[in-house]
Amino acid sequence: MDAGALRGTAELIAENSRWEYDDLPRTGGGEVGCCINVWTLANGLWLGANVAPLTSWFSEHQQPDGGWNCEMGLGF
């Protein structure tokens, strides 16, 4: 895909898309699930979005074994 076709996409997402959970910006605060956040992080980086606030989610939610689990925090 031509990179020019995506120009402005990150800004549109930032302006118009929020998580249902806590009404946080899509690339700013993170969702409750690791799987969702890793896709958001990867897509945000690909689009050139500022995903710095989302990166802290991973260090804050890392499990004792060093990994992240999609079931984390869901009561399983």
Rank of each mutant, 00 (worst) to 15 (best):
M1Q: 04
D2S: 05
A3C: 04
G4F: 10
G4R: 10
G4L: 10
G4T: 06
L6H: 02
L6W: 06
L6T: 04
L6G: 03
G8V: 01
G8K: 03
T9H: 09
A10D: 00
E11T: 11
E11M: 12
I13G: 03
I13H: 05
A14G: 01
A14K: 00
E15K: 13
R18G: 08
W19I: 06
E20Y: 05
D23W: 15
L24Q: 10
L24P: 04
P25A: 08
T27C: 11
G29R: 13
G29N: 13
E31T: 00
V32E: 03
C35T: 01
I36E: 00
N37L: 11
W39R: 12
W39D: 09
T40F: 10
T40R: 14
L41Y: 01
L41D: 00
N43V: 15
G44D: 03
L45Q: 06
W46A: 10
L47A: 05
G48D: 02
G48H: 01
G48F: 02
A49F: 14
V51G: 11
V51S: 07
A52F: 03
A52N: 07
P53W: 05
L54W: 08
S56A: 05
W57T: 05
W57N: 12
F58H: 06
F58R: 14
S59H: 12
E60F: 12
H61K: 15
H61V: 14
Q62T: 09
Q62E: 07
Q63L: 15
Q63C: 15
P64W: 06
P64M: 11
D65E: 07
D65H: 15
G66M: 15
G67A: 13
W68P: 00
N69K: 15
C70V: 09
E71I: 15
E71H: 14
G73I: 15
L74D: 03
L74Y: 06
